[in-house]
Every structure is written in structure tokens, then in C-alpha cells.
Nucleic acid binder design. Structure first.
Length: 543
RNA sequence: GCGGGUAUAGCUUAGUGGUAAAGCUCCAGCCUUCCAAGCUGGCUAUGUGGGUUCGAUUCCCACUACCCGCUCCA
């Protein structure tokens, strides 16, 4: 990327930030006290924008689907949840900084990592001056109850997903859902990021929109349907099928999520996809795709769609000592028809897999797997197979996990437009406007009497406002010249303006009595609409 | 956390060791028959805390925030 381009992108970002502040979309948190690093507030219009995005996601994810239900869990949960999920271990590392080479290393690894400047020596032995080991707690801690003590430590959730796993059984038992099904949730999450950066992109308090979609393990599909549908380029993934394994479901959700972004105005040109390579994948993930948006400051992640296997529910099963599983009648019936040889073939295959996986995991820690470990893994797999044949399994999971604040920022960046134009006197000036999709626009309709000092116009405009406000977020404006009012609303992305003029009152042209001008934001095009049809006319254009 | 930069009104900028300037926006009034028109008036600022000084927005130090680069990103 050239420097000139960097500069332009920075300038563009600064314009967006400035507009957001000037028009009440995004403010710095606690600004009157100097601000707080990594925290941002949404002003009146930002709050509407976020709400529209949140509602659009919720509607597509659960209301318009028969196979997904919602959840709204607490931010503070039992601390053991974060031990089971692995967050307590992976979020709290002792780190050492090298003041010479500016590197940061895990304190327990400096003996084994070579120094970036002198690769012949390890970090522990190189000459660089190093700080004392310091703990990096990426989870915010608090205390439950008034006593500040170790046993009262709790965490603000670093992701919303774990709440879904923790309530999986309750949802299953109360909602008449059957695998495959999903549980979705929108809510705040907190991460004590080392470096919040890029405006609201990496904040310490942010809102996530997550779905855990529970599916049958491929082995269950194979027993029930004889084979698992294999994915290949061009495969039909428009509607779910019974014989889909995790890979098809994963592909399906990537496409489904892309369609969502398109429905709110992000085109495929705005987006990019990063398929994680095998070494990038976490050990519990089978595949992970990042959906990226081309922000002015770089192409960055909007959403991750991971195929996580049964890792999370298995962890919680182990920690609480109760299977977080599902009884599948169809599987039980199908398994009953298997011959002993067929069952044994599956068991043999799974035991070999368990052994290989154990060896691989150990190899990651640069050691050999012990016989005990292998035996334990095989025993666990044996019992997994036995339960499978009885119809029980811990479902596997496809996890589309999106950031609401990142989406809001992406929508703002995609919508931002500047055009040079001439004003009424022929003077050149810049027209700035936000080209929001009407679905997400904070304000839907501007309502204007052509002139303020004509009471009939004002009264009629007020009447139109009252007619529309319950269905559409409207903004009534009677100040300044009509062109200025249009420009003001264009700048915050209001897609339509309704102007009440003398024709509305029946002057000049009697056939135009009770009609208004509807002006479209992007083109400025105007059309004449009878008041009796106005509401339907506008509502039709919101979709 | 490291290095570099920045901090003056709602926004964009000017300027000064001694009363802080402008444009735009915004508000009010007049006027205005469809794209930021005009006229009049008005509100609003030196990020925070120290130091030097008779006096600091200006010089120095610290802090905070933001930007850029590194780093981090389950």
C-alpha cells in the first residue's frame, strides 16, 4: 500500500469520525473527563443505527427461522464457565517485554523462543533489557458480593457464546427444539485489549451477535443416512438437507451470513473472506472463515464462522459431570439396524482417530503422548461410540459470531459519500451524505413544510408527521431553506424527504390537492405522491 | 506495552509570554414557492495536573485521549 493511499485512507477515516461526532452518531466515552481508552458511546442517531442493525440480525437469525431460538443471558456468570471454556488459562498470561527489540513474549516461553535480533540466542539469554514478568488479564475481573476476596472473583464475559453452551440443556428441555437447531444471542462482551485501535473497531466493551448452531456429528448422519453429503464447488446449499455434515452446514452459514450483509447494503465487493489454514486453526476448530470488510484502515474481520466440533459442550459436560447431550430417536432406530461388524468398524476407526489426535496434541507441546493418555483417550472414545449407538451424542457446533459495533462501523464506512457540486450561486462545495440502506438508516423520513412562515403549510406538515411517526422514524424540520434541510438529512443518511408545498394545499393546480413531494436521498429525484398513499409508498421502499 | 505525531468553539483551521481570530455549523429574527441563498443578532474553545514567570493557550515536566507504525488480536 502506497503512502499516498495510506494518507487518503487516514483522511477518509478522520472525516467519518468527525461526521459521527458532529451529527451525534458516535462519541468518545467519558469525553468530558478526557475519555477512556477503548470505550465509545453512541449518540442519538448511532443508537438508532445500532438498534436497526441489531433488529435486522435478530429478525433474520431467529424470527424468520423455525430452527433458531433466542437467549438473553447475564454478563457475569459462574467463574467456572471460563475455566471450562479455556479463557481463564488463555487470557491470563505472564508476559515479558524486551526494551531492546520491542518484542513481547510469554514469560514461560522465553527459554525456548529465539531472540528476533540474535536468533542464535534464546530470549532469556539475549542481551536485551527485559521488563519483569507482568500478568496480562484480557478478562475484566470483578467480585460478586461485597467482600473483595479471591473466592468471590468473577469475570465480565469476554464472549457471549459460553452463555449459550451453559444454557443449552435448559433451552433443549423447554423449547421443543431438535438437532439441528440453533440458539442465538446479542449482548455486551468485554475484553481488556492490549491495544484498542482504529476508532470503534477494537473496543474494550463491545456488542456481539452470536449463533451456536447445533448439528448431528457426521457419524450420526452416516448411520442414519448411509453417507454424509460432501461439499464441492457449486453444491446447492440454499436450503438445509437432512444428510448434511458439518462441512455443508459450515458452507451454508457462510452463504447465509453473506446474504444478510447484502440485505443491509454491504455488497460482495465490500467483503472478503479468509479461510484459516490448518496451522491457524485452534485445536478444537475444524474450519473457520473470517468475513472481512474493506475498512479504510485495512481489511478487517467483521464475523468469524467456526466449525467447532463438540469442544465446548464436551468441556462443560466434563466440568459439571453431566452430559450436555441430545437424544436422537432417529439415530437410535438407525443404529439398531447396524450389524455388529458395521458397529465394530466404526469403533475401530474412531479409536484410531482418538489415538492420532492425542499424539498430535502432545506434539504441539513438543512432547510425546504417554501410553496413559492414549489409553484414556481411547476409553473415552469407546464410551462415546457406545452412547452414539444408543442415540446419544453431544451435538457439534457451527458458530457464526459477529461484532455489532464493527458492523455499525462498516455500514458507516460503506455509506460515506462525498461529491463535489455547485450551489445555487455556482460556488463549488462538497456534498457529504451517507448512503444507508433504508432498512438500517437511523432516520427514515424527513418531513418539511416548504416555508415556515405559512401556518397552513406547517399545520399540514405536522399532520403528515403524526401520520407517519408510529411506523417510521421521522424527523420534522421547518428551519432554514429547503435545500439546507435536504442537505442536513442527506448527511445523516435519511433516505426520503417529504415536502409539503402550496400544491398540497390545492393552490396553483387543483389536481395536486393533498399530494406531497417525495425526494430520494441519493439521486435527489422527486415524485408526487397522494397523501392517502404516502404511508404505503414509503413503507414499500423500506425493504 | 514500545517508538513517532497531535490536542484552540459542535466541525475545520489561524494565532500570541500580556483582551484568542476566522470560515462552516448551530440558535433566534427578518426574508424566502424545492437542493447548504441573503441580511441582522447570538451561543460556544486553548485536554488534565504540575513547574518556570509579575503574567503561560504559548516554554518545561507528567498524565490522559486520539492518529500513524510496531505489537497483540482465544
Amino acid at each position: 500500500m502506497s503512502q499516498a493511499k495510506d494518507h487518503n485512507n487516514t483522511a477518509l477515516m478522520e472525516k467519518i469520525v468527525s461526521l459521527c461526532k458532529r451529527r451525534g452518531i458516535i462519541f468518545q466515552s467519558s469525553e468530558i473527563y478526557g475519555g477512556l481508552n477503548g470505550f465509545w458511546d453512541y449518540g442519538p442517531l448511532g443508537a438508532e443505527l445500532k438498534r436497526n442493525l441489531r433488529d435486522a440480525w435478530w429478525r433474520t437469525m431467529t424470527r424468520e427461522r423455525e430452527d433458531v431460538v433466542g437467549l438473553d443471558a447475564t454478563i457475569i456468570m459462574h467463574p467456572s464457565i471460563w475455566k471450562a471454556s479455556g479463557h481463564v488459562d488463555t487470557f491470563c498470561d505472564m508476559m515479558v517485554d524486551c526494551k531492546t527489540c520491542k518484542g513481547r513474549f510469554r514469560a514461560d516461553h522465553i527459554g525456548g523462543i529465539s531472540c528476533p535480533q540474535k536468533p542464535s540466542k534464546c530470549v532469556a539469554d539475549c542481551a536485551g533489557e527485559k521488563t519483569e514478568p507482568r500478568p496480562f488479564n484480557l478478562m475484566f475481573q470483578t467480585y460478586v458480593g461485597p467482600i473483595i476476596s479471591e473466592e468471590n472473583v468473577a469475570y465480565l464475559r469476554p464472549e457471549t457464546a459460553q452463555a449459550i453452551f451453559a444454557q443449552y440443556k435448559n433451552v433443549l428441555d423447554s423449547s421443543r427444539v431438535k438437532v439441528p437447531f440453533g440458539i442465538c444471542q446479542i449482548g455486551k462482551a468485554f475484553r481488556n485489549e492490549i491495544t484498542p485501535r482504529n476508532y470503534t473497531f477494537r473496543s474494550r466493551e463491545f456488542e456481539q451477535m452470536e449463533l451456536e448452531f447445533f448439528i448431528k456429528p457426521d457419524e450420526a448422519i452416516e448411520i442414519i443416512h448411509g453417507a454424509v453429503a460432501q461439499w464441492s464447488e457449486g453444491a446447492d446449499i440454499s436450503e438445509p438437507r437432512a444428510n448434511w455434515g458439518w462441512e455443508m452446514w459450515h458452507r451454508y452459514w457462510v452463504e447465509e451470513r453473506t446474504r444478510f450483509y447484502e440485505s443491509i447494503g454491504l455488497t460482495r465487493d465490500h467483503l472478503d473472506y479468509h479461510w484459516q489454514t490448518p496451522d491457524e486453526l485452534a485445536h478444537y476448530a475444524r474450519a473457520c472463515v473470517d468475513i472481512l470488510f474493506k475498512f479504510p484502515f485495512g481489511t478487517e474481520e467483521l464475523e468469524g464462522i467456526a466449525a467447532r466440533g463438540d469442544f465446548d459442550l464436551s468441556q462443560h459436560s466434563d466440568f459439571v459431570g453431566k452430559y450436555q447431550d441430545f437424544f436422537d430417536e432417529e439415530l437410535k432406530a438407525a443404529a439398531a439396524k447396524l450389524t455388529d461388524e458395521e458397529k465394530q468398524a466404526l469403533v475401530t476407526k474412531k479409536l484410531a482417530e482418538a489415538e492420532e489426535k492425542t499424539r498430535k496434541l502432545a506434539a504441539k507441546d513438543q512432547r510425546e503422548a504417554s501410553e496413559e493418555e492414549i489409553t484414556a483417550a481411547k476409553a473415552k472414545m469407546q464410551s462415546w461410540c457406545e452412547r452414539l449407538f444408543k442415540g446419544f451424542y453431544i451435538p457439534h457446533v457451527i458458530e457464526p459470531s459477529a461484532g455489532l459495533d464493527r458492523l455499525a462501523l462498516a455500514i458507516l464506512c460503506a455509506a460515506f459519500q462525498e461529491e463535489e457540486k455547485e450551489d445555487i450561486n455556482g460556488k463549488k462545495e462538497m456534498r457529504t451524505y451517507l448512503r444507508f440502506h433504508p432498512r438500517v438508516a437511523p432516520t427514515k423520513i424527513g418531513i418539511y413544510p416548504l416555508l415556515k412562515n405559512k401556518p397552513e403549510l406547517v399545520a399540514k406538515a405536522r399532520e403528515v408527521y403524526r401520520m407517519l411517526k408510529s411506523d417510521l422514524n421521522c424527523f420534522y424540520d421547518e428551519t432554514a431553506a429547503i435545500g439546507r434541510r435536504y442537505a442536513r438529512q442527506d448527511e445523516v443518511g435519511t433516505p426520503f424527504g417529504v415536502t409539503i408545498d402550496f400544491e398540497t394545499l390545492g393552490e396553483n393546480a387543483p389536481e395536486l390537492l393533498d399530494t406531497v413531494t417525495v425526494r430520494e436521498r441519493d439521486s435527489g429525484a422527486q415524485s408526487r405522491v397522494p397523501l392517502s398513499e404516502l404511508r404505503a409508498f414509503l413503507l414499500a421502499r423500506m425493504q
